[in-house]
């Protein structure tokens, strides 16, 4: 038996909107730790890792570890039927082939339940060891989204370079080229507006902008984004979900032949 009650139901709606473009079908894993997911896109270039910790739910019952295969587009369709202020409860029976999403309006005068068929998904979990990154950039998530969107009108790839001077996003295309440099800026009024660069070594990596733009669908989840870079590793783009966990996107770099 599984019963997870999330008072801030809009979080789950936003999570689905942020990952459904990248991944079609995925297993949601439920354990005493929380509600989680790890899934790669079909080309195995990008991976999403989601964690919603059990403590973040108002009620969290998970009698045994469960893995529930869901089509994310169908799940998003159902969650779209929940109001932004609704409380969402996820329910499933052990060994069952459906999951139920229950939506309660804040005043309890409307209660809906939507039952969705589960699917069997062969998922391959990648082991991702904890890594020391050469540079970690924390910046406003809206600024990062704007940069990715702007650069994708010029080119297909972005070179992200971190030096003492700041973080540089560069692209090149048929019509020309573009460079956007963000300097460390910690003297702003609000901490969420700061750009903070924590660099141990300079780093420069090339990535497909198509994926970066897809990751920025998570912007509504967090005011800030952190971008962790190492010269020999995929980039990690992380959106923290307030008091609950995170959505992390991993993206393998492009290399010069």
């Amino acid at each position: 038996m599984l019963e997870l009650r999330l008072v801030q139901g809009s979080l789950l709606k936003k999570v689905l909107e942020s990952i459904k473009e990248l991944v079609t079908d995925a297993n949601f894993d439920c354990s005493s730790t929380g509600f989680s997911l790890q899934a790669m896109d079909s080309s195995h270039v990008a991976l999403v890792a989601l964690l919603l910790r059990s403590e973040g739910f108002e009620h969290y019952r998970c009698d045994r570890n469960m893995s529930m295969g869901m089509n994310l587009n169908n799940m998003a369709k159902m969650l779209k039927c929940a109001g932004n202020d609704d409380i969402i409860t996820i329910k499933a029976d052990d060994g069952g082939d459906t999951v139920t999403f229950m939506f309660e309006s804040p005043t309890q005068d409307k209660i809906s339940d939507f039952e969705m068929k589960l699917m069997d998904i062969d998922s391959e979990h990648l082991g991702i060891p904890e890594a020391e990154y050469h540079a970690i950039v924390k910046m406003p998530s809206s600024e990062f989204a704007r940069i990715c969107r702007d650069l994708s009108s010029i080119g297909d790839t972005v070179v992200i370079s971190v030096t003492k001077e700041g973080v540089k996003f560069s692209t090149k295309g048929d019509i020309g080229s573009a460079n956007i440099v963000c300097r460390q800026n910690t003297s702003v009024d609000k901490p969420e507006e700061a750009t903070v660069i924590d660099m141990n070594e300079p780093v420069s990596l090339t990535f497909a902008l198509r994926y970066m733009n897809s990751f920025t669908k998570a912007t509504p989840l967090s005011n800030t984004v952190s971008i962790s870079l190492s010269n020999e590793l995929p980039v990690v783009v992380e959106y923290k979900i307030a008091e609950m966990g995170y959505v992390r996107f991993y993206l393998a770099p492009k290399i010069e032949e």
């Binding site: 790669m40 080309s43 195995h44 270039v45 990008a46 991976l47 391959e124 979990h125 990648l126 082991g127 991702i128 060891p129 790839t157 090339t206 497909a208 020999e232 590793l233 995929p234 991993y250 393998a252 770099p253 492009k254 290399i255 010069e256 032949e257």
Partner: peptide, 14 residues
């Protein structure tokens, strides 16, 4: 030319 690497080049399956 640029080549897109896959995640398996960095991580292995559990």
């Amino acid at each position: 030319r640029e080549t897109q690497l896959r995640l398996e080049a960095f991580y292995s399956f559990n």
